[in-house]
């Protein structure tokens, strides 16, 4: 199973590298948009897939990242890509502020509150808060990204920029999932009471997952602003959040699953253009059927593997090392 997934991952990477050379401009643009969704879905996967926090307001963080990029770029003319960390930090800070008081809420209540947050953000953007967001028309004239004096203009170049970022995210987030942090998150997802009992600070880890996911979404927002050069509140509507949410839920929570389900749910409707009206209908139907027949999602993460033999051997060695000392101490005691 692991081998099988590893091979399919290699095939996927190879395919993604050569893909743009086989497609026309329209389809490259579609792939760029799939890449942006994949970034968002990967970042939401930390919160929803790994920590099991039902968060449906991801578009809010995406919006914060995109708007911070747009505002700073158009007002101060700082190159777009330099703004990526700033956009991420702004989104993370925003997430920290809003999530701090609500993180302890139980599953479905949290879901409702995050929906409320994304709506409040959208209404705030439309109402032109502080005269910065440009109201319902949004902001236009965002400059193209530059790397070492090389301006990225063509779809093909954007393709490599966005998918390069997706590649980095997969590596980094994969490492994170295997780390102590990732293990704590899966424990919280499985059973938060037991996790709390074992000394995992549940509220703190949940908040960290939230803030980290928001950081990544904010950076994706920068790429979106740079690609579109125009952003408006309607791009960050509640429906957008629902789509990302559904992609992650249906993926099952593994990184490969997230990429596959992004392709299925964002890419496939483009192939079936004549059914594009029924796209969301099928989406809803898939969500219902999936929960009934395959509630764990398309490709759930494989069970963690631990080298039990090695761990036992290490334990035995440590015991053996401790033994002579112990005996020596006991002898001293007798004497």
């Amino acid at each position: 199973m692991i081998q099988c997934r590893r091979y399919s991952a290699f095939v996927l990477v190879a395919l993604l590298c050569v893909l743009p050379h086989m497609l026309d401009r329209y389809w490259i643009d579609v792939c760029v948009s799939i890449g942006l969704y994949a970034l968002l879905a990967l970042s939401l996967n930390v919160i929803l897939g790994q920590a099991g926090i039902f968060h449906m307001g991801h578009a809010a963080f995406y919006a914060v990242g995109a708007y911070v990029t747009a505002i700073v770029n158009t007002q101060f003319h700082i190159p777009v890509l330099w703004l990526m960390p700033l956009a991420g930090c702004a989104a993370a800070l925003f997430a920290l502020l809003v999530a701090r008081p609500i993180i302890h809420l139980r599953g479905d209540y949290l879901l409702i509150v995050t929906i409320g947050i994304v709506e409040i953000v959208r209404i705030a953007l439309i109402n032109d808060v502080g005269g910065l967001t440009g109201g319902a028309n949004g902001i236009f004239g965002i400059s193209r990204p530059e790397i070492f004096g090389f301006t990225i203009k063509k779809s093909m170049q954007f393709y490599y920029l966005v998918w390069g970022m997706v590649g980095c995210s997969v590596l980094l987030l994969g490492w994170l999932a295997r780390s102590r942090f990732g293990r704590a998150l899966s424990y919280i997802k499985e059973d938060d009471v037991a996790a709390e009992g074992c000394g995992v600070d549940v509220a703190r880890y949940k908040l960290m997952a939230f803030v980290f996911g928001a950081f990544w979404a904010g950076m994706a927002g920068t790429l979106y602003a740079a690609k579109m050069t125009i952003i408006a509140p309607e791009s960050f509507s509640f429906m957008e959040s629902v789509i990302i949410f559904a992609v992650v839920i249906l993926s099952g929570g593994s990184q490969l699953g997230v990429l596959v389900s992004t392709f299925l749910f964002i890419g496939l409707p483009e192939l079936l253009r004549e059914f594009s009206n029924a796209r969301m209908l099928l989406f809803g139907l898939a969500m219902m059927l999936m929960m009934i027949w395959r509630p764990q999602g398309l490709l759930p993460p494989l069970p963690r593997r631990y080298n039990v033999q090695a761990a036992l051997a290490a334990l035995r060695r440590r015991k053996a090392e401790a033994e002579p000392e112990h005996k020596a101490k006991a002898k001293q005691g007798e004497a």
Partner: peptide, 13 residues
């Protein structure tokens, strides 16, 4: 809850 969300999207569309 996810099934309910799916049903909601389904009905709306």
């Amino acid at each position: 809850v996810v099934s309910a969300l799916g049903a909601s999207i389904f009905f709306q569309n």
